[in-house]
Write a protein that binds this DNA or RNA. Structure first.
Lengths: 354, 354
DNA sequence: ATGAAAGCGCTAACAT
DNA sequence: ATGTTAGCGCTTTCAT
């Protein structure tokens, strides 16, 4: 391949408009100190020549790179992609993040990073050195990884921690895990359920704990007992199956179960079927995530939606604001997670009901 | 935000190793003219300092950008993301493309471009000017857009056209639409079906035509008539519904239907249900795409898988090869699309069967 | 096989 | 409000 050069550079524009490079640069960057005459004249040349600045050159001269790095967990993401179970976390991130970036002339670059490895730092600093991003978006479980958070806080790059709570550096955005777990639990309580089981997610994710907290709060507030109703999974189908079996084969089984993600909810549905329990008549189920798959089960699952697109969009906004020098939000940003009602929830029936 | 500078530059490495910048550059780029002593010494400094080259600087000095642009249709992609129907085209592209990029130190950047607009060229040249990618991957319907193909062929950037057949500039990769349609049709013929309906996709996609061709070839070879068995859709659920209704309400209805994508197959399934036709006993269905959703229908659908990950991976390989100056493949690259058998196909029964 | 000098396209800092 | 100068980190010449 022959050496490629920029087709139209700032020099061409400057020559065409008969002004200095700096003036063109000022117009590109919307700086205030340009007379409107000048601004019009230069803009005309830009449009005429179809000039677009090279982000490489912009970054080189110490300015922005217009690149925002979105980092996901490598193993889980690849596993999801290969499993082809319809998990659309990445798509929703792109929907929210990419489009918001585009609005501001930024680009989102997706990266996969291992959480576990001892060289997280090296992976991250390599990506930063290579790309020089203007901001970084962390998703769970990275958002809660102290090693990553500490490393980034020393890098002088704004970063947002999705699904996290302000407990360290960076800007946190929560998807209201505690609140939505409370809402889901209350929803069941209001229908008359008293024995509501809960399947927790992987402990590596802080949000797993908050969901448990929300459930417990709602149960306590209603005077319902929690004993024997909490089981631990790790977000996998298999772990959900085991947890559901423990809950449903106990002497006093729950009349409803909330699972901390869709895969574990699916497993619960299957275990119920095995045990001859009709859903929702014999057992109500609510799941977390609301990935596409839960609309296609029989019955479709009532689920707590994860507003990933809205969250990613907000994350981009916060980074761009921080870039501009605006102060980071002082309070925790929370994007609420709505409960989507479908067919897997009903009033309790039989002896364990209300 | 304070002005960010590269933490470790080529200068630091050069100083540490006690050599010139140029020598370090040669080591980074694996150039042959470096003595192995030198190479080791410099590499040691690189490792010690954790040096990673800035792609902005590399690109600025007329070398590679290590960026590959993957371009998808804006409207359709966003519609898919919003619909949350589990379509994982983008994910599979990332799975194949991103990972292959990473193997070679490249990055994949996703972009959305309008096919229809009259300013496709402007959108594209802006992306090229801003990013200076080393290669571009086009997906349908962009791959067949003559405006785009012609524009890119003048840009001196290698580009791959996915789902396209060599009819112009660029490197084409086909997913064997004709062959897989033939295979699917033969599969039904071998089970004894004679009246096999076909629902074509949007005419904007050349692959729609090839799929029809494959079906027709198999039918002709078996001496089966095609008359009244071909209906046109546009890949939407609604269009599939209308097409299926036309096919199934005709006086001599087909005993099997092949739909050119999953959404139209889903619609066919629903129309069959409405008409009281049991699938697969009363009607066999085969779909194209094999998105996650088709595993969750009742029955699960037999489908022609689209090997998007493998194709994207191959596309990246071809671009990197072209970048290095290797000649483009002389023959059309084809990635075969396997037929995944599930429960929606059975032997024909009743008067229209074999 | 190695080094020195020039320049890529742009912006920060300092003029005026 | 506009122009000039220097330099970002790297690779391309062109030397030696």
């Amino acid at each position: 391949m022959a050496r490629r050069r920029q087709a139209v550079t700032i020099k061409h524009v400057a020559a065409d408009a008969g002004v200095s490079l700096q003036t063109v640069s000022r117009v590109i960057n919307n700086e205030p100190s340009v007379s409107s005459d000048m601004q019009r004249r230069v803009q005309a040349s830009i449009d005429k020549l179809g000039y677009v600045p090279s982000i490489a050159a912009q970054r080189m001269s110490g300015s922005r790179s217009y690149l925002i790095l979105a980092i996901n967990d490598r193993d889980r993401t690849i596993a999801d992609w290969r499993a082809r179970l319809g998990t659309d976390w990445v798509d929703q991130m792109l929907l929210g993040g990419m489009l918001k970036c585009a609005e501001h002339g930024y680009r989102m670059i997706f990266e996969l990073v291992d959480t576990h490895s001892d060289h997280v730092e090296r992976e991250l600093s390599a990506a930063i050195a290579a790309l020089q991003p203007d901001g970084i978006i962390l998703t769970p479980p990275h958002s809660d990884n102290p090693q990553i958070v500490q490393f980034l806080s020393g890098q002088n790059i704004p970063f947002v921690r999705i699904g996290s709570i302000q407990n360290g550096a960076g800007i946190s955005i929560s998807m209201d895990d505690e609140g939505s777990a409370r809402t889901a639990t209350r929803h069941l309580l209001e229908l008359g359920h008293r024995r509501i089981g809960f399947i927790a997610g992987a402990s590596e994710y802080e949000l797993s704990g908050w969901r448990v907290d929300g459930w417990r709060q709602a149960m306590d507030a209603a005077g319902a007992v929690c004993d024997g109703l909490l089981e631990y999974g790790n977000f996998s189908y298999a772990s959900g199956e085991a947890a559901a079996r423990r809950l449903l084969m106990a002497p006093e089984r729950p009349s409803a179960i909330i699972a901390s993600n869709d895969q574990m909810a699916l497993a619960t549905l299957e275990v119920a079927r095995e045990l001859g329990l009709n859903v929702p008549v014999g057992l109500s189920i609510i799941s977390f995530d609301n990935t596409p798959i839960v609309r296609f089960t029989q019955p479709a699952l009532t689920a707590v939606d994860q507003p990933i697109a809205a969250t990613a969009s907000k994350a981009v906004e916060l980074i761009i604001a921080a870039q501009k020098g605006d102060p980071a939000p002082t309070s925790l940003t929370t994007i609420s997670a709505p409960l989507i009602e479908r067919g897997s929830v009903a009033k309790p029936s039989g002896r364990f009901g209300g």
